[in-house]
Amino acid sequence: MTGDRFHYKYLKSDAPNEKINYSYSSFHGQEFIDAYRRTRKGFITKKQLPSIYDSISSQLSLNWTNGYLETEAIFDFWLIRLIEDKEWIDSEINLLIKRFEVTKKIYTTYKEDMRPIDKTSYHDVVNYAKFGLVLAKMYKNTNYFPALNALIKISDIILSNEKFYGKKNNLYVQSVIREEFELVNNLIAKNL
């Protein structure tokens, strides 16, 4: 059986509406790696991208006075902090990783306890992409594997959903898939 015939089974056309099941996943060696790589290579464009960090709003703090925040503002704040301080870790990032691992959804607004305001509002691909970028930066800074694990799942959701996939030229979407692909390939290279 060659890698071309092996199917990467973690893409579901109705994600994030339908959760992708990663429980008790078995590893199928090089065939699995080849199938994974095909899913990413087919998405990544050759176009040179501007720096995503130039387009992120740089907030000095998060203002929770209304009791909630737009998700994109939270992720922009986290990204800036992770860029400026490689040692910085916010417990809220870990909390959102845990909540994401349960729901496989990123909502448009969150309360301070990282619970969503509206559980029906989770279809903004930019929020998935920006959370993926937060996870990539966190993993680069700390080698924290739960961040990489969640990042792979974010990428699978983006690649699964036709509406999300259609945003392939979005700067954040393209950047997160490239980042994830590079991080995974670097990890594979280290361990082979």
Rank of each mutant, 00 (worst) to 15 (best):
R37E: 08
N94Q: 00
I188M: 04
E182N: 13
W78C: 05
R40Y: 10
H123N: 12
K137V: 04
E18D: 12
S155E: 02
G29L: 04
L187W: 00
L159K: 08
Y139A: 09
L95Y: 07
I117L: 13
D85R: 05
F100D: 01
T39S: 13
E112C: 13
K41L: 14
A150K: 03
T108C: 14
D156C: 14
L82E: 06
I158T: 07
I117Q: 07
V125P: 12
Y110L: 15
F43H: 10
I80K: 15
A136N: 02
T109N: 11
S61Q: 06
R81D: 15
E87K: 13
N141I: 01
S57K: 12
N186F: 06
K9V: 00
K47P: 05
I152E: 15
N17V: 09
N66K: 08
N149L: 02
N185K: 01
D76V: 04
T142Q: 10
G166R: 10
Y10C: 02
D85K: 12
Y22A: 03
S26W: 03
K41S: 10
I158F: 13
E31M: 05
A73F: 04
V125S: 08
A189Q: 11
T2M: 04
T45G: 10
Y68C: 12
I188Y: 06
A150M: 13
W78G: 09
T71Y: 00
K9G: 13
G3T: 06
R178T: 10
V102F: 07
L151I: 05
I158P: 03
H7E: 08
E101C: 10
V134W: 00
Y22T: 08
N141F: 00
V126G: 06
I83G: 01
Y10E: 00
D113F: 01
V126L: 05
W64D: 10
T109A: 11
A147S: 15
Y22K: 02
S25P: 02
I52E: 15
E31F: 03
V126N: 09
E72W: 02
K153L: 08
I106V: 12
Y165W: 01
E87D: 14
F181V: 06
Q59E: 12
K19H: 02
L11Q: 11
S160T: 04
K104P: 07
Q48E: 09
S23C: 12
T39V: 13
F164Y: 07
G67W: 03
K9Q: 06
I74S: 03
D156R: 05
R5C: 08
F164E: 00
N94G: 01
D34N: 13
I44S: 11
F131K: 00
A136D: 04
Y22I: 01
G42H: 04
V125N: 02
K105V: 05
W78Y: 10
N170M: 03
K167Y: 03
I44A: 12
S13E: 13
Y122V: 11
F77P: 01
A189S: 14
I20M: 09
Y165M: 01
F100W: 00
R5K: 12
M1K: 09
E162Y: 03
Q174A: 09
K9L: 00
